[in-house]
Design a protein around this nucleic acid. Structure first.
Lengths: 232, 232
DNA sequence: ACAAAAGTGTTCTGTCTACACCCATGC
DNA sequence: GCATGGGTGTAGACAGAACACTTTTGT
């Protein structure tokens, strides 16, 4: 049977990729949503996404859609889950390969009047009604992020290049929804040897300014090849 | 835009579900493969799977195909990853939602001359050439199993209702590819309180017979709702 | 000088690791 | 009675949790 003879005559579902984009700002974990300009769910908010083209795989599709709809590119992105329930899209049979991405929000501030679509960051604690089954996708993405941030250095993807230990701790506390001990957190995170001291501090605050650090990507890669496992 | 007006006119990929089935027997982790009777890859081995029908979601498709091709049903099954690379199927554009399943192999011995397809268990250490990109799927499934067995009680899905602690330990050693201390393993696994002592022992061995236990599913469910986390 | 958050060290406790001997059984 | 694998306890190392005081800086 060669390529031309392949006839899978059954109706095929349409395939899309959707992307949950997380950011962290002002002490809040946020997601980027797009207001839909067309039916179905016109006026509702939804994750950026769109249909798979024949010349790309799902990863490429997710990145393309993300860029087209928000201008964001070159970020951490990982496949999350494929949602295929009947009726999840009122237009007909559509299955979606969901992704989640982590962006340094400070480097991706949305300009007013950005693009054609209305894109906005929402704190995860107060997202509006979502289109399709995007609430389930969000729940899955949050669960993945919470589960994975503890044993993979995902936190750094959400912070600027330079960050302070208290900022990092705050991020962990927000994502994990639990208070951590300052001293123990600092000791543990510095003990990994993965933070590079920038020997600069926060200025202009009415108290001692926290010191800046950067994440040592190369060292992490090196260590994980040797079987080291990051853990908070 | 109502349902009838939905025309996504672009060509659509075909969508299939494939299932990696793990079993454990004779001290070996095994996978169930089917010998393909049709092109492409006729004569090659592949995971059971097939195309998504319009009246089912991917989970249902995976279970249906598993049952149709092997007679196995009612087993632990979880979505693994969606593979969508161009060219992964020589017949044309096919994306597949991969699953993995864990079966109690002792209860699913294959009868000789089972079904139409030739199905066979292979030790994961010596699988033959696989069709399509099924080698990648297998690698992903193994990685998932190894990662997850440590903090979810997956091991019990691979053993008979009644099993001994040394059997369980052997399973963990096989999957994790590392020796564990007998005393510490027993202490730790019994300390979870999730094993029910059957007060029976292995008979007919030329040494003291190991005691049988069962996994307490109800208690596990109960405990995990309370935030308990299983860990080996 | 005071308010506010950053930074630091020590003790305690519980868990993981390493390890050696006795027990039960079939031949 | 011996070979084989199953079952048990304990001491030392290590890591995580709890906790209070000093430092820096802007007002």
């Amino acid at each position: 049977m060669d390529q031309k003879q392949f006839c899978y005559e059954y109706p095929r579902p349409a395939v899309s990729a959707d992307c949950v984009i997380f950011g962290f700002d002002e002490g809040d974990l946020k997601v980027l949503l797009i207001e839909r300009g067309a039916e179905p769910f016109r006026g509702c908010w939804a994750f950026p996404g769109g249909f798979l083209e024949m010349g790309e795989n799902a990863d490429e599709c997710a990145r393309r859609e993300l860029f087209e709809e928000t201008g964001i590119k070159d970020v951490f992105m990982e496949q999350l889950y494929t949602f295929s329930d009947i009726g999840r899209d009122p237009r007909g049979r559509v299955i979606t390969v969901a992704y989640y991405a982590l962006v340094k929000l400070s480097e991706h501030k949305l300009q007013a009047g950005d693009d054609a679509n209305k894109a906005r960051w929402f704190p995860v604690s107060s997202v509006p009604m979502l289109a399709f089954d995007h609430d389930r996708i969000l729940a899955a993405a949050l669960a993945r992020l919470r589960g994975k941030i503890r044993y993979q250095p995902l936190g750094f993807e959400l912070l600027p290049e330079k960050f302070t230990v208290p900022e990092l701790q705050h991020l962990y506390e927000t994502v994990l929804e639990k208070k951590l001990d300052r001293r123990n957190f600092r000791r543990k995170i510095l003990a990994t040897g993965l933070l590079i001291d920038r020997f600069e501090s926060v200025k202009g605050v009415p108290h001692r300014g926290a010191g800046y650090f950067s994440f040592d990507r190369d060292k992490y890669r090196e260590l994980s090849e040797k079987g080291f496992s990051f853990e908070i």
